[in-house]
Design a protein around this nucleic acid. Structure first.
Length: 670
DNA sequence: GTTCGCCTCGTCGTA
DNA sequence: CGAGGCGAAC
């Protein structure tokens, strides 16, 4: 048995990794710098546990994304010889885990039949609460939802969260508080849970030690990846479980980039206080990059007033210097990146050689446009998630009203798809639904009264979906069929063909889910990007990714785009040390993705920031710019900026031209 | 009064 | 690309 799992993985580890994989301490924190074989070590650890007799289904790996979970699962399974003995290791996100526990034991946790709201739906509910003005104290629904979420994740009061998020504005927190109370009540009435609520329900029940003991007894060891991005709300889940299971946490303080979501990387510095008896191990040898790439990355961290105590060493040795290319416009920059890829292609390098890292979804679009233009296959990580795209939401709204008839957001969305029905008519229909319900009508009868003035196809379609509710892909198919005519019209000028293809993907994702709510929950909690569903993702392709979505990614060549003044650090973070330092770590994560060739690109004159900051503001940004003190020896600088030829000013007499007669001479028509 | 289309504007990052 | 404002059309 033992030999079955021992594939020699341990033999490939260096002494520090081996020590980390085999540690016998009850709780462990592995501080693993970028490229030091973090995933390799986690995988070796899991295989080691299994080899020593831990049943795979008693091991839980918490990761940051669906992709990271999938990678751990597949690497733990290894080849066919070991796949069966390693079957059953659970790998999922924090939210996925919390939901699995809550849904798995409704007697313990409650909330059966409640729907999970994503961010856009939360904003929709908040808009409904705010009514006509749509603002309170100048804050829009989206801002209030954000500050509330920040309060939950950092376990602050709402008043404190408002002070932290809006330090300069005189905001009457009482008015916000009233809106939030109304929002909470609305969520309760409609049986809605937000992302945060899922963690909060789980955490609240774990405060009962009997519950913590019971949950802890399911697992021999819980592994947590990207520990530096764990926030106080997630710690509230970990803490009560410490006496009841073992924790194996892996992280890197220099890669903490989720402060905006409440993560505080300092909590890994105090890990031993929080988790008594924990052993702390360090991995410092970098296997990913050449020394030149690490020299630049190390330099960036050294400039920080926070001491990171980190210096990555390249086991691979020396290579080419990183390049720093400067352009006039983002379009030139994108053109260069695409042209470099085409050049590499002529040298027969696969598309998968390349990774392009962008700061924002928005800035990724310029790159995307060039890749389309040059016919380069790519997948974009970040950006629109499949279940967040408007047309998919339209279709899912029909499933949602069947699964949870109290789901007002879904009702409104569905009803306003009907021709000649707008907000007012839809709200009236929903009101009559509510009236029927409070009059004691069953959900189905109430539905009939909501649909009274609506076309017959809608009622028939909802009945059909309800009949198919056990076969979720079938239900998706029926919803799509019912709405096909209205959607084809709604999106007639917005790429309807591509959107229709997405609907087929959704149907495929829904196959083998046990219920509509389970299906929606799974993909709301661990979203799939639209572009991951495209055919390109099955073939050789370039990856374009926001830095935040690039955790764990590496490629031979990495292009770090838009590394301009005003972006690193971003203009909006100026003046707040913590935020500026988080921006530094974002750039650090980007730089450390490259194995062989690191290409940093930037624009120097036509930045959009310059336009609204003005030149005085621009000086401040230049001062704060991380790369403005970059020593020459660290990079190869390549200017692409074309100096505009300066012309001599015209002599004074020519400066006020007479207007030119632009009318045509009609000849003999006069 | 209500719907719908068109236009402008602003967009950090994510489960 | 979505949200929101505005005016035309129903």
């Amino acid at each position: 048995m033992a030999e079955q799992v021992d594939d020699g993985a341990l033999a490939h580890l260096n002494p520090a990794q081996r020590e980390a994989a085999l540690t016998e301490a009850r709780h462990n924190l592995i501080l693993a710098g970028a490229g030091t074989g973090k995933t390799t070590t986690i995988v070796a650890r899991i295989r080691h546990l299994i080899r020593n007799g831990t049943p795979p289904d008693r091991i839980l790996a918490i990761t940051f994304t669906r992709r990271a979970a999938a990678e751990i699962r597949s690497r733990v399974q290894g080849d066919a010889a070991t796949a069966s003995s390693t079957q059953g290791v659970a790998a999922m996100t924090f939210h996925g885990w919390a939901m699995r526990e809550v849904r798995g034991a409704p007697d313990v946790f409650g909330y059966e039949g409640w729907s999970v709201l994503d961010q856009e739906d939360q904003q929709q509910v908040m808009r409904g609460v705010l009514g006509r003005g749509k603002r309170v104290e100048g804050l829009k629904a989206a801002q209030i939802v954000d500050v509330l979420s920040f309060a939950h994740n950092t376990r602050r009061t709402l008043a404190d969260a408002i002070r932290v998020k809006f330090p300069d504005d005189a905001i009457d927190a009482k008015a916000i508080g009233a809106a939030v109370r109304a929002y909470e009540q609305r969520k309760q009435e409609r049986r809605y849970l937000t992302y945060d609520d899922i963690l909060r329900v789980f955490a609240a029940r774990l405060a009962d030690d009997a519950v913590a003991e019971w949950v802890g007894s399911h697992y021999d060891e819980i592994l947590i990846d990207e520990m530096q991005d764990t926030n106080p709300l997630q710690w509230q889940i970990i803490d009560p479980l410490v006496p009841h299971t073992r924790f194996y946490c892996v992280g890197d303080d220099a890669q903490s980039i989720y402060g905006f979501r409440g993560a505080d990387f300092a909590s890994i510095h105090s890990f031993r206080d929080r988790v008594p008896g924990a052993r702390v191990l360090k991995l410092e040898d970098n296997y990913r990059s050449t020394q030149e790439i690490l020299d630049l990355s190390n330099w960036l961290l050294e400039q920080s007033p926070l001491g990171y105590d980190k210096k990555l060493r390249a086991v691979r040795g020396r290579g080419a210097k990183p390049e720093l290319h400067s352009f006039e416009t983002p379009a030139d920059e994108a053109g260069f990146i695409a042209a470099e890829m085409l050049r590499a292609r002529r040298d027969e390098l696969p598309w998968a050689t390349h990774l392009v890292l962008v700061r924002t979804n928005y800035s990724g679009r310029a790159i995307e446009a060039r890749l389309v233009e040059y016919d380069i296959p790519y997948v974009f990580f970040g950006g629109v998630k499949l279940l967040e795209s408007a047309h998919v939401r339209d279709v899912l709204s029909a499933l949602r009203v069947v699964a949870n008839p109290d789901d007002e957001v879904a009702w409104m969305r569905l009803l306003t798809l009907v021709p000649r029905v707008g907000d007012v008519t839809a709200a009236r229909a929903f009101d009559s639904f509510l009236a029927a319900r409070s009059g004691g009508a069953s959900a189905r009868e109430a539905r009939a009264s909501a649909l009274a003035g609506m076309p017959a196809w809608l009622a028939a379609g909802l009945d059909a979906i309800e009949e198919a509710a056990k076969r979720v892909d079938d239900a998706v198919g029926r919803a799509a069929a019912m709405l096909q005519p209205v959607l084809a019209h709604k999106y007639r000028n917005e790429n309807w063909e591509a959107r229709a293809r997405d609907l087929v993907h959704v149907e495929r994702l829904a196959a083998s889910r046990r219920s509509i709510l389970e299906f929606l929950e799974e993909y709301i909690l661990s979203p799939v990007f639209t572009s991951e569903m495209e055919p390109e993702s099955q073939q050789d392709h370039v990856i374009v990714s926001t830095v935040h979505s690039a955790k764990g990614l590496e490629r031979d060549w990495a292009f770090v785009a838009g590394a301009s003044a005003g972006s690193y650090p971003s203009a909006r973070s100026l003046g707040d040390l913590d935020e500026v330092e988080e921006e530094r770590r974002v750039l650090y994560v980007a730089l450390t993705r490259a194995r062989d060739r690191l290409v940093v690109t930037r624009t120097v004159s036509h930045t959009p920031v310059r336009a609204w900051m003005g030149s005085a503001g621009m000086d401040v940004l230049e001062d704060a710019y991380f790369l403005n003190t970059l020593p020459e020896r660290l990079v190869e600088e390549v200017p692409h900026v074309v100096a505009r030829p300066s012309r001599p000013a015209p002599p004074p007499g020519l400066s006020a031209p007479a207007e030119v007669d632009l009318s045509i001479d009609l000849g003999d028509l006069e």
